[in-house]
Computed example of a mutant assay.
Amino acid sequence: MVDTYEYLDSTPAKQARLAAVRRYQLVDRPTEPAYDRIAYIAATIVDTPIASVTMVEENRVWLAACYGLPVREIGAEPGLCASAIGQDGVYVVRNAVKDPRTVAHPLVTGDLGLRFYAAAPIRTRDGFRLGTVNVIDRKPREPDEKHLRSLEYLAEIVADELELRLMAIRGALG
């Protein structure tokens, strides 16, 4: 597993990844139905009250879509999305108050009371991990392989949608 801070803070890699996030022009935009549907499907499949599609920027995580939580951005503190993009597979936190990666995270210690988190990184065709498709619960959970694989497939669908978006952006400019 790649160390999260190394992945996020290595200057050339960081700048290239941030440029990849920007090229899709999804951050600071209204939600789009395709991503809203993916968040809803993720929550439904894993049976969680919260799910989102995120883009990880330098100092924040932009929620391109969110089901069950009325926010559009959160901090990029380690332990959740910013850590999930630092590895290839699904990142799982079964009980956040007992996991050293997340025990001090504001979403764990604050009003949300996050206990369970699972996220599949969204990977572009050129290998950048931009964000996640993730699910959240307020109680600890033990996900099964079917749930984790579903998150990976949904993240792949988001990556496909992003490529279609990029083609539309380039077509509009061209």
Rank of each mutant, 00 (worst) to 15 (best):
M1S: 14
T4G: 15
S10V: 12
P12W: 04
R17L: 07
L18G: 02
A20Y: 01
V21H: 00
V21D: 05
R23I: 04
Q25E: 10
L26M: 10
P30A: 13
P30I: 06
T31W: 14
A34M: 11
A34V: 08
D36L: 05
Y40P: 07
Y40Q: 15
A42D: 00
I45D: 09
D47N: 10
P49E: 11
T54G: 05
M55R: 05
V56K: 05
V56A: 08
V61K: 04
W62L: 01
A64M: 13
A64E: 14
C66L: 08
C66S: 11
Y67F: 15
Y67H: 15
G68T: 03
L69G: 04
P70N: 08
V71K: 12
V71F: 11
R72T: 12
R72V: 08
I74M: 13
G75P: 01
P78W: 07
P78V: 05
P78H: 07
P78L: 09
G79T: 01
C81L: 03
G89R: 04
V90I: 03
V90Q: 05
Y91R: 04
N95R: 12
N95Q: 13
D99I: 05
P100W: 06
T102V: 08
V103P: 02
V103R: 09
A104T: 14
P106S: 00
L107P: 01
T109V: 09
L112V: 00
R115D: 10
R115E: 12
R115H: 09
F116N: 07
Y117D: 06
D126S: 09
G127Y: 05
F128G: 07
T132H: 06
V133L: 03
I136F: 11
R138W: 09
K139D: 15
P140K: 06
P140A: 09
E142A: 15
E142D: 15
D144T: 02
D144E: 11
H147Q: 15
L148G: 02
E152S: 13
I157M: 15
V158G: 00
A159H: 06
D160V: 10
L162P: 01
E163L: 08
L164W: 12
R165W: 06
M167S: 15
M167C: 14
I169W: 07
G171S: 12
A172S: 13
A172R: 11
L173V: 13
L173W: 13
G174V: 11
